[in-house]
Simulated scan of single mutants.
Amino acid sequence: MCYSARIEADYHEYTRLYGADISIGDFVKLYWNRKEGAKLRIPKAVDAAFARDGSQEARQVREWIAQYDAQQATKLEQDLFKQRKRLADAQRTLQVKTTKAAQESQRIATDKIAWTLGKLADLRRTALTGEDARIFPGWYAPVLVVENGRRVVKPMRYQCRPAGKPAFYDSKYPGCYNARRDNLRGFWKEQFGHTHGLVVMDAFYENVSRHAVERRELRAGETEENVILEFSPTPPQPMLVACVWSHWRQGDEELLSFAAITDDPPPEIAAAGHDRCVIPIKPANIDAWLNPDPANLDAALAILDDRERPYYEHRLAA
């Protein structure tokens, strides 16, 4: 399962490289909903793209981003104050008597202070890093689709909720951020051949067992340990990762969401201990993929088979 990816977060690049229009109304709606209290996760690098846009809509989004960041900073500062007080209380207790409760309170407060200071630093930082373009299940990313004959970029949640399904599908099927190629005609039949998209990635991340990465069996008495690997194509290049997506509606609620299609891994990923891989399509197949024929699913599968085949280097993720 591709549980995380580093994406091209700047919608201007979709316009420059792929001739896409931005569906600014969908971005405005997304940021409006977050401003109104919806718990939406949007990468910092997606926010930053609006600094380069002089449109009235982009200016409004920038204002909402600033308001949201200020609210988040206030919450973090309040939490920081509480944890510093907790730490001081624990330290005063320990000066009089050593207790397990005070030691544990000191440990927890110290960890939470460090975490909160890190979050505040990230919030206030203006220079972007690669981590600012990471998405995880439930986070939003720009997705390239076709709408009314034009390539368009829309913000979508990385965890697909198929149209017509109840909202509890998110918890019932938490793995719906990926769509297995061998299940496209089954679970994903309402999307496959109908609503195809592309997400531009330059790396993806997988959970694997340490002993599998090290190509050995578990030692006697050894507990299985999970590590996170970053896989990136060599030489570095953007990957046009095939996706299916859905426009879910219920009353006044709407949700645009997608799942990345995965398949059996190439040898170098299998050797690193993982059993799935995203599918980057060839640029020549963009229009054919984004304009599928529901009556010819074999043609869509042929595009997935005629994929780009870079060599995937891997390293332990930070």
Rank of each mutant, 00 (worst) to 15 (best):
F136R: 13
L128G: 07
D132E: 06
W115A: 14
E131W: 04
G138K: 08
R124W: 00
P137S: 10
A90S: 12
E104W: 01
Y140R: 07
D89G: 02
R125A: 12
R86S: 14
K100W: 01
F136M: 10
I108H: 01
K82I: 07
Q95D: 13
R84N: 10
A109V: 07
A101C: 00
A133T: 13
Q83I: 00
K97N: 11
K82S: 11
T129P: 03
I108R: 07
K82T: 10
Q83T: 05
R107K: 15
D89I: 02
D111F: 02
A133L: 03
R107A: 14
Q83V: 01
T116A: 09
Q91E: 12
D122I: 01
A109K: 03
A114E: 11
A127W: 01
R134M: 12
R84W: 01
A90V: 08
Y140D: 08
A141E: 04
A102V: 09
G130C: 03
R84P: 01
D111G: 00
E131A: 15
E131Q: 15
K85I: 09
L117M: 15
Q91K: 13
D89H: 05
I113W: 03
L123T: 13
F136G: 02
E104H: 09
A127T: 15
D132A: 08
V96I: 12
A90M: 06
Q91I: 04
V96C: 00
I135S: 04
Y140E: 10
K119C: 10
D111E: 13
G118R: 12
K82C: 04
A101T: 13
A121G: 00
G118V: 09
L87M: 09
D122L: 08
Y140T: 13
R134W: 01
T116V: 12
D122T: 13
K112V: 03
A141C: 07
T126E: 13
L120W: 05
T98Y: 00
K100V: 03
F136I: 03
K112N: 14
T99K: 07
A88Y: 00
D132K: 13
D111M: 08
L128I: 07
K82D: 09
I108K: 07
R86D: 09
E131S: 15
R92F: 00
G130S: 14
Q106H: 06
R84C: 04
A133M: 05
I108F: 01
